[in-house]
Amino acid sequence: MTKNKLLEVMTDKSVDFLRHPVCHHTPLSFRRKTNYYEQIMLKHPLPSPFHSLAEYLHGGLLEADPSVQSYVPQPYQFKINGKRYIPDVFVIRGNQKIVMEIKPEAQTPFHYEQYLEPFLHKYQIRFEVITNESILAQEQKAVNWLKIVQVLVAANKSRIRTTQLQDEIMSKLLMSDEGIELGDFIDSGDRQRTYATEVAVFRLAHAGLISLALEQSDLGFDTVLSL
């Protein structure tokens, strides 16, 4: 157990655990008290628990950000001033390690920040507070990406190969000045026939190699792809 004045790390792990955390299990009793969501993600390829709609949508936004390599929901268990506290998510973005807390704007500034920020800084980990409102403002984009993640997780499980298709899609986009609609790659009358192409498009987008217009409308056949 690591102590820092009024803050304790309750998980009995080495200092490396702070830099490489593991998702904490959410008890069934707590799930019933919260707006609980769970989904296998790509950048956290395990059942990922989210304790609110804002946390769940934020997971979708992390998947959409190609600069984010990985993240861990519910990463640590602290005790601060005698009260149990689990941050919402640990994120690796580029060469940065960040612990994030998601709160309604009315509940900021977050009163635990004064303890967490200096403690985590010793281990080259930043602490950030993100408001629910800033996430909900991007709800459409997040929902679309959560759907894409579901498709890609299933494709990875089935070991769908798409390298050649990805090259073909990139070649077509290189020759297009205005982008191409998703429906030009996917057969709306026979989705199964073009399933691998759909997966290829989503893999390119997830890697940040192409862009999908997902901010204003539902993911669909008229979604525009561009470089």
Rank of each mutant, 00 (worst) to 15 (best):
E128Y: 04
F110R: 07
I169N: 04
N132D: 14
L6P: 03
Y71D: 11
L28D: 04
Y71F: 13
Q140A: 11
K3C: 02
L204G: 03
K172S: 06
L204R: 12
N95C: 12
S171N: 11
K5Y: 15
T223A: 00
N95P: 08
E113Q: 14
S158K: 15
I160M: 01
K13S: 04
A213M: 15
E105T: 05
R159S: 05
M100H: 08
P21D: 06
N95S: 15
V91E: 01
Y195M: 09
H20L: 12
L136S: 08
D190A: 13
P66F: 08
S14L: 11
L28C: 05
A137T: 01
S134R: 10
K83C: 11
Q138I: 02
Q150R: 02
Q192K: 07
I135C: 02
L174P: 04
N156Y: 11
K157C: 03
L225C: 01
C23A: 10
L18K: 04
D222I: 07
A155M: 07
L204P: 02
L28E: 07
K141D: 02
E113K: 14
F90I: 10
K103Q: 08
Y36W: 03
W145I: 09
F202Q: 00
R191K: 13
L173Q: 12
L7Q: 07
L219G: 10
A137W: 06
R84G: 05
N132W: 06
S14T: 13
F110H: 13
V224G: 00
G183V: 00
N35A: 14
Q124G: 14
S226P: 06
A155E: 08
S217F: 03
P75I: 15
S217N: 13
V201I: 03
P109I: 10
T2K: 05
A142D: 07
M10T: 08
L61P: 13
P21E: 08
W145T: 07
T26D: 05
E105M: 07
L7C: 03
L219N: 09
H51W: 12
I125M: 06
L18C: 05
F78M: 05
G82C: 05
S48P: 00
S211F: 14
V151N: 08
L6C: 06
I186K: 01
K141I: 03
L53A: 09
F202D: 00
I180G: 00
I130A: 07
S29C: 04
F185E: 00
I186H: 00
Q39K: 11
L174W: 14
Y115L: 05
R93K: 15
C23L: 09
L61A: 08
G82T: 08
E133V: 09
K43Q: 01
Y123K: 07
V9I: 14
R159I: 05
I186W: 07
I169D: 04
E128P: 08
V151S: 07
Y115P: 00
A54H: 01
T197K: 13
T2H: 08
D218F: 14
L212S: 00
Y37K: 10
T163S: 10
A196M: 12
I92E: 15
Q138H: 10
L42K: 09
V143A: 02
G208V: 00
V91C: 04
L182C: 05
V91W: 02
Q39F: 05
Q138S: 06
R32E: 15
T26A: 12
V72M: 04
D187M: 02
V22S: 06
H20D: 13
P104M: 11
C23R: 12
S70H: 12
Q140R: 15
P118Q: 09
K97I: 14
